[in-house]
Design a protein around this nucleic acid. Sequence first.
DNA 1: CGAACAATTGATCCTCATCAAACCTTGTGG
DNA 2: CCACAAGGTTTGATGAGGATCAATTGTTCG
Lengths: 238, 238
Amino acid sequence: MPLQASDLRRVRIFQEVSEEDLHYFLSRSILRAVEEGEFLFFQGDVAEFCYVLISGKVKLVQSTPTGHVVNLRVIHAWQVFGAIGAIKPGSVYPVSAQAILPSTVLAIRSTLLNEAMKTRPFLCLALMQQIAGYVHEIQERYRESVTERVEQRIARILLRLAQQTGVKTGAGVLIELPFSRQDLAEMAGTTLFTISRTFSRWEKQGLVVSGRKQVILTNLHGIVQVAEGILGEPDEEQ
Amino acid sequence: MPLQASDLRRVRIFQEVSEEDLHYFLSRSILRAVEEGEFLFFQGDVAEFCYVLISGKVKLVQSTPTGHVVNLRVIHAWQVFGAIGAIKPGSVYPVSAQAILPSTVLAIRSTLLNEAMKTRPFLCLALMQQIAGYVHEIQERYRESVTERVEQRIARILLRLAQQTGVKTGAGVLIELPFSRQDLAEMAGTTLFTISRTFSRWEKQGLVVSGRKQVILTNLHGIVQVAEGILGEPDEEQ
DNA sequence: CGAACAATTGATCCTCATCAAACCTTGTGG
DNA sequence: CCACAAGGTTTGATGAGGATCAATTGTTCG
């Protein structure tokens, strides 16, 4: 089915926009399908477009010269990403965007949004609020990466994912994104080996059931305790 | 001397504001002096004011329940900080602000700025650009904290400081802020011991001259190489 | 069924935090 | 002017947490 203007109401920054503006944006934007693994843009590219994710999942990553990859954010449906060009025309994306599922996106020309914001303060404020929320999250993650041990950070990542896309099942909260150990490692700032080991341990403790590319949190409260550092090192067990 | 409206032109987000707006802001704001070590606000406080630093230096830090302190940012004169309340009325500061020198600040009521932005898109856009720049920096630091070793991160911190407040002298670039080893450790996400050790090593290698609460970068190029990971571990030297 | 990929597990090593102790400044009061 | 205190700094010894590498074991798909 084609994308309706009314669908765009699900996008937070478009909630207060006029009906005709909505049509305006929609008529001038490009609906684009991307395959799993495909990149929408690379860090360093000029930010000609900003995007609304319509369906699927996208991750924002940074990669270093040495080959390390850091996952900064996972984008869910109806979220905006890559808006840096709309904020400051001519700037470049600070991250790369890669689809982790077959996805569709609405590509809005940055200049279009930028112009629109110049005469629609509420649009501008709405985007700023989004960014502020993101600042908050990345600050937290920075602090965690510096002060907390890996185990805690993994727990926090799981909790965030559960909150964002968790599905309650009989056995617990299921995180059903296609996240390999590698993906999780990139989110927590560790290696897939450590993720694997940690999951093995947690599985013995009855905190999670981990399968291929999915995880079920069977004891949410326990995970929270790990995240808080209360359930630290299980010196002796069994 | 009293603060002139024209002085506020040095604040980036006020560059394009009308003269009368400037007077409006100034007349309704409070000029406040704080001593070294004094806090302007704590994380978790309701963000009733946002601030412009007029003179001195302020640091933004987060502290954890376990007592770890993370330094997120150092504020220099004419920079805005604590603007979260202007973006979203009623929200709380995500960080604490502490003066690291005797300072004076202009406290602007958040609601005042928020209202102003609703009718002055350029003001809104200017603030958003500031925030975007900050997002960029914190993302970089996050990536660094996850992928790079301490030595590199310390080098990067020094380079940032040099760029922000470095003074060229005969011997090299002087960073003259009153930064103890503890402060630097909080910025780089390490301990004062490691900072001390690193400086000792660098001093032997002729990269820096470190004194009490100050550093001179005598070989900027060398520091850059360390930051890039090129000048890694000097296995054998001499 | 085999190929390709994901996950596990073990052995090893290295970086860095931690704790303890000594050392060096700067300022204060006799 | 010296003595002493207080805070910043250095250095050493030690250990723990994870990264790294290699080898093995599932799992999915053509």
